[in-house]
């Protein structure tokens, strides 16, 4: 294992310093900027978790909100019964179980079929939860009264993001990460190398889903009231995909480069043009797809570091998938 080599320690140390500094943000700014920060960090976790699976495998998943919603719902159901860390644990378990089921049943699907399935899954889960609430509990809409402040939510999300980046960093240098990259380049080759393709994909899908579920669970106390329409809002899945693609899903920090500008842009558009938000957003997406087909990371690699990698194919695939989702 290469854990103690300097090229591991240095980035981790830098990251630790940055995160420690970020933890002091609440004492510097008012609660409006804190709510903006929560938005940035939560999308950062979601987009990075999404890219962790979708970047190397190139599966476009629209199931982000499924796991996010499962997390939020777990808190709504158990929030007042168990201590919050235990609730998070249960949420993580629930997300893992669903991700395993979904993973094993669908990761043999390829291309657009997988996209459609994940999108349909959102509706399926939403309807199942609605059915259960209507017919079993006879209580649609749940209340989450927890004494969790905005700052608590921010710190939890920040910690989650730190764990996620560390996981991604370790993964990138592990055998599993290497196997994934081979699968992403060519699945047939990967099989011939003796890689159990399905198991590797499922493992990563579950890992990515776990972080999404925890994000939903951490955010839920902010909303006070949760019903299936609120928890499983498909817009979220699309936003995450677009942010990750703008940043560049094939680098660990790539999605972050999409999350920060887009979250701020959404904020400026909402605040300044409340009546024209949707049309301006559409224009922004077109600009991204036509002018930045490889994402911000792609742009950087193109002008700064012309390494001998399979850059052109990267760009092509990203652009194609962007067109599909846009």
């Amino acid at each position: 294992m290469s854990i103690l080599k300097p090229d591991f320690i240095k980035p981790v140390a830098i990251g630790a310093v940055i995160f420690a500094a970020l933890a002091f943000l609440p004492s510097l700014v008012d609660s409006y900027y804190m709510s903006l920060a929560i938005s940035v960090v939560s999308f950062a976790v979601l987009a990075t978790a999404w890219s962790m699976f979708s970047g190397p495998t190139r599966y476009i998943s629209l199931a982000t909100v499924v796991f996010f919603g499962i997390g939020a719902y777990t808190v709504a159901v158990l929030g007042e019964v168990l201590a919050f860390p235990l609730v998070l644990l249960c949420a993580g378990l629930a997300g893992t179980v669903v991700a395993l089921l979904v993973g094993f049943s669908t990761l043999r699907l390829a291309g657009v079929y997988f996209v459609i399935f994940t999108f349909g899954l959102t509706e399926l889960v939403r309807q199942v939860v609605s059915w259960y609430e209507v017919n079993v509990t006879r209580e649609m809409g749940r209340y989450v009264f927890l004494d969790i402040t905005q700052n608590d939510i921010y710190w939890q999300l920040l910690a989650l993001f730190a764990v996620l980046l560390l996981t991604g960093f370790v993964l990138g240098r592990s055998r599993l990460g290497f196997a994934l990259r081979i699968i992403g380049e060519d699945e047939t080759v990967a099989k011939h190398c003796g890689i159990d393709v399905t198991r590797v994909k499922v493992a990563l899908f579950v890992l990515s889903a776990l972080f999404m579920t925890l994000t939903g669970a951490i955010i839920a106390p902010r909303w006070t009231y949760i019903d299936p329409v609120i928890a499983f809002n498909p817009m979220l899945s699309f936003q995450v995909v677009i942010m990750a693609l703008l940043g560049g899903p094939r680098r660990l920090l790539g999605p972050l480069l999409g999350v920060i500008p887009l979250t701020l842009l959404f904020e400026v558009l909402t605040a300044s043009f409340p009546n024209h938000f949707s049309i301006l957003l559409g224009c922004v997406f077109m600009v991204i797809v036509y002018l930045l087909p490889g994402g911000v990371v792609g742009l950087y690699e193109k002008y700064r570091a012309p390494k001998k990698r399979t850059l052109s194919t990267d760009t092509e695939t990203t652009r194609k998938s962007e067109e599909k989702t846009a």
Binding site: I219, R222, I230, T270, P274
Partner: peptide
């Protein structure tokens, strides 16, 4: 005035 786009998160923000 703002548009909350029928979303809890947007309304909160």
């Amino acid at each position: 005035e703002y548009d909350d786009r029928s979303s809890s998160e947007e309304a909160v923000r």
